Amino acid sequence: MKSAKTLLIADDHPVVRSALRILVKQEGFQRVFEASKGNEVISMIREHRPDVVVLDLVMPEMDGLDVLQRIRDNGMQCQVVVFTSLARTFYQERCMRAGAGAFVSKSSGMEDVLKALRAVSVGYTYFQSLPTVALDSLQRTEKEMIDKLSNRELTICLYLANGLSNKEIAIIMHLSHKTISTYKTRLTEKLNLQSKVHLRDFCKRNHLI
């Protein structure tokens, strides 16, 4: 790995950042920076101009999908390796469309992170094939409904399913309480659900949480 020597780790877990820092240092990245909140990432990219960003999708202040979108909208020249615990089934394609160069599940371990870093550093991408499991009619219908949600709708859906209130989500996403309430109503309609309890069951059934 000769061309990429500067890297930004964006993850809100100190242990993960520490492990990644050791790993990437061994891979020859001489300058390594860290961000623990999503809203820090764009300014740090501007300041440090990293060749690669290792990005978690679940972070305070701004989620990773929003960060990816802003990186692309601002024309920032860096490769992004998404490193997340969220389900590949629902997030890998979204990340590809948003401009990520790789998607690695945190359940895969650090060896896949190395493979992804080596791939994006020489201009390749690193995305694994999604499992081709047979889905029954209910699973197929629900997956299609999830796939039709916007990135923001899916993010709010997960916050609600994890028990956050409208007010808490509004603070995290820098949106108004009324806007979150509107999204909540839209989600229950789009997913054909009756309540927040059903929303949590829906997300658990589809391995979103």
Rank of each mutant, 00 (worst) to 15 (best):
H174S: 14
T6C: 09
A100L: 05
C203H: 02
R70Q: 07
L57W: 02
V54F: 10
G101L: 09
E47Y: 04
E40N: 06
L164H: 07
S129K: 14
Q30P: 05
K143V: 12
K167Q: 15
L158Y: 06
V58W: 09
K115D: 10
A102V: 02
H177Y: 13
L154K: 09
D63P: 07
Q139R: 12
D12H: 04
L193Q: 07
R97C: 05
K115I: 13
L7S: 05
V80A: 13
P14W: 00
L208N: 05
P60K: 03
H207C: 06
A119V: 13
A4D: 06
A102S: 03
K37R: 11
N74T: 12
R17I: 04
A10Y: 02
R94P: 01
S108L: 12
L193H: 11
I71N: 01
E144R: 08
F202G: 03
A10C: 09
Y124C: 09
I171Q: 15
S137T: 15
R205I: 02
V82R: 08
R70G: 01
N166Q: 09
R88L: 06
A35W: 03
A134I: 14
A116N: 05
R152V: 07
T179W: 12
G64C: 03
L55P: 04
V52L: 12
F127I: 02
L7W: 03
S43M: 11
E34L: 00
L193E: 10
F127L: 05
